[in-house]
Design a protein around this nucleic acid. Sequence first.
RNA 1: GCCGGAGUGGUGAAAUGGUAGACGCGACGGACUCAAAAUCCGUUGGGCUUAACGCCCGUGAGGGUUCAAGUCCCUCCUCCGGCACCA
Length: 845
Amino acid sequence: MTDQPRDTEILPPRYDFTTIEARWQAYWLTHKTFRTSSDPTRKKAFVLDMFPYPSGAGLHVGHPEGYTATDIYSRFLRMNGYNVLHPMGWDAFGLPAEQYAIQTGTHPAKTTQVNINTFRRQIQSLGFSYDWDREVDTTDPTYYKWTQWIFLQLFKKGLAYQAEIPVNWCAALGTVLSNEEVIDGKSERGAHPVVRVPMRQWMLKITAYGDDLLNSVETLDWPEGIKAMQRNWIGRSEGAEVDFTVVGDAGTLRVFTTRPDTLFGATYMVIAPEHPLVAKLTTPAQKVAVEAYVEAARHKSERDRQAEVKEKSGVFTGAYATNPLTGKDVPIWIADYVLGGYGTGAIMAVPAHDDRDFAFAQQFGLPIIQVVSKDGTRWQEHPQQALTEYGVAVNSGRFDGLATLDVKKQVTDWLVAEGIGERKVNYKLRDWVFSRQRYWGEPIPVFYPVISAVDGGKMREVGLTASNVADLVEQGSWQIDYTTSHAVPESELPLTLPPTDDFLPTGNAEPPLAKCHDWRFFQQNGRWYARETNTMPQWAGSCWYYLRYIDPHNPDALASPEALKYWLPVDLYVGGAEHAVLHLLYARFWHKVLYDLGVVPTAEPFQRLINQGMILGEDGEKMSKSRGNVINPDDVLKEHGADTFRLYEMFMGPLEQVKPWSTRDIVGSKRFLQRVWNLFEKPYVDDAPDAAILRVQHRLVKKVTEDSHVLRFNTAISAMMIALNELAALPALPRETAEAFVLVLAPYAPHLAEELWAKLGHAPSVGLAPWPTFDEALCVDDTIEIPVQVNGKLRGKLQVKKDTPADELARMALADPAVMKWTEGKEVLKVIPVVGRMVSVVVKG
RNA sequence: GCCGGAGUGGUGAAAUGGUAGACGCGACGGACUCAAAAUCCGUUGGGCUUAACGCCCGUGAGGGUUCAAGUCCCUCCUCCGGCACCA
């Protein structure tokens, strides 16, 4: 082994990816090869990745998948003359850094910087063509200045408000979570228990944009599934609110229904346990039972409630209300299958035509009256289930025989005319709980007056320190007047986080910032004020980062209007489907607010969206530490190099598809690059390629061009492999063909392409060289093979000139011996020649 | 239950309604080598066969449209993702 020195005269040098990749990565960085600037004279493309949260675990093999796709696309567009904005940044506020800080005592700012550096190094080692001068970091005060600025615009428009509402409190995380962050009654992060408790919170009125967010979903070039999820989450439903008069009491009980046509079948009513009228409606005889039920419902977790979907629970209040259509009195029940937070928190129950009401009525023996029928006939027996589909009205007095849609309209008209109801649209979407009781987030730029608990006057005491004020507030002799919120003046932004070491949660609902007295309390014109100590959720920074990329160093605006006009909207946005609701809905909301303010010129931020499919472990399961099936990108890079890694991830299958990693298969991509290297070790000739080689070349360029346009990178790579297989057989390589090959390879394996481009005698960078062209006519062989089918089965093949006309094809097909075997003695009914494609013969007998 | 998406060789996959399985992996056979690795060449959907020629079957199941269906239509099954007491 050791006594056999490598004979460099005979063996071609191996493809040395380590040296090549280091060389070109350094070149691109120092020369800022891919730096971008606005240029209104050029066509633009904004190609965006969902920026990562820089976790301590480092890059995952899932990250490079989307990043490689956008990088190939960006490089492809650049070579095709586009001015491409392709940036990267860090979504660096958030719970994990803070959790880590709590465990280790390391300040989150420090952890975050370390993690960002790791991520940047890893991302750069993949050779992506980002414009690093545009890197953004959501935790940078010059960045979050504008996050706070946007919050102030929301505040001024009345879209940010405080409310004392039941929120999703997660004790383990020490913070509240938005509805979107709670999955199955547990926190999205960490799966910790979540309970509903009332707390003062900052809210964003996303519901004000419900219709807008819903309607413009239609204009987006997004995957159908994501659009459906957005529609679903917004959950618009049209119906009516109806007043029922409570018996023996002048009051009314208002319900929301989407089926006013079934009012005749409303045989009882249900109010939520949280409903404000519970106490008033409950009769003395039922008081004990109702109070016990309400108390039990309050202590049920979300999870408990969901566990009993099949089994309903409830208690009769003792009260009755009058059905306005039938005039009959119906009992009012209280049950937790009616949600306090949706509609009016009360329903009219129509057990015959609603599954939930049916189950409840069955369980408690309440009457079930059919008022809709599929065919006009009535049930002869007790029904087994509710009929929820539309049909025609029965048992509905003057509406009998009318179709459901007509009954809906007429009943609603009647309710409106009588003044006991109105048309109403409801949304599942709730306002966004925007405050978090954590340290590592953007401070909410709001403050409140500190007032005396004794006389309510504003404090003018002199000679006090912030600590004194904190003590007085603690003792309760002074109070913070949360009802009077003042915005921090825009000129004072950013309101920076105090650099405290005491960032641990307080153990109760009070945020860590409350402990920073010198930051929290300040005096102005002799009066004391207290800053808001809640911070913003992680989603805030990611709601608008794509805008900052457009003009990242602008000190006077989040971005200049000219730059925004040039670059918006994002032409391609690639990221994981896990952000289908949260990030994409929030970002769209902020964008629409900014659009209404005239800050951004488009109604939607992300015109086209693609979700890359998850990369699974080799066992076909989701990668996770506990399964031990995690592939570390650093290891792959070290062993195979960045070009191989990129190529393999794209060759695995369609971008959108979920696919398992295969350590075995990746060698195929590496072999390909090695063989490309070997190909360019051949001598070059300057003669024009002959027709056969020219055909290989033009087919290659055509296929890669077309597939790159539509992001079908797997088939583009396959086309390169096919071309390589053909060219590898040649003794020498025509220069023209060699150059075309390097150029189409460049977006996919950029390091190797730069190396070969230099080897061909060109100056860098191949990434900025013009894309090669192809001639459709040169892609087709002069003679082509035409299959002949007889009765749908392949029976023969014709070798013909490519332009052979239809009648000639038909004649040749019928004269072909292989075909004649199947037509002999049979009647030829029809011959269908398709020029350049095939001939189909139909025979009988 | 509802909403999305997908079912093709041993395997990742490919196929404007027009020769199903390109390309890659693996496997098998061969070359090179003392040998191995690497590399190169060949074969590789299943079955039948007089095995050179050739035939039958085959894209989750069943129907339909068409000269022609993996592709379009209907019914069903399975898997994946999301939502789920929202009246």
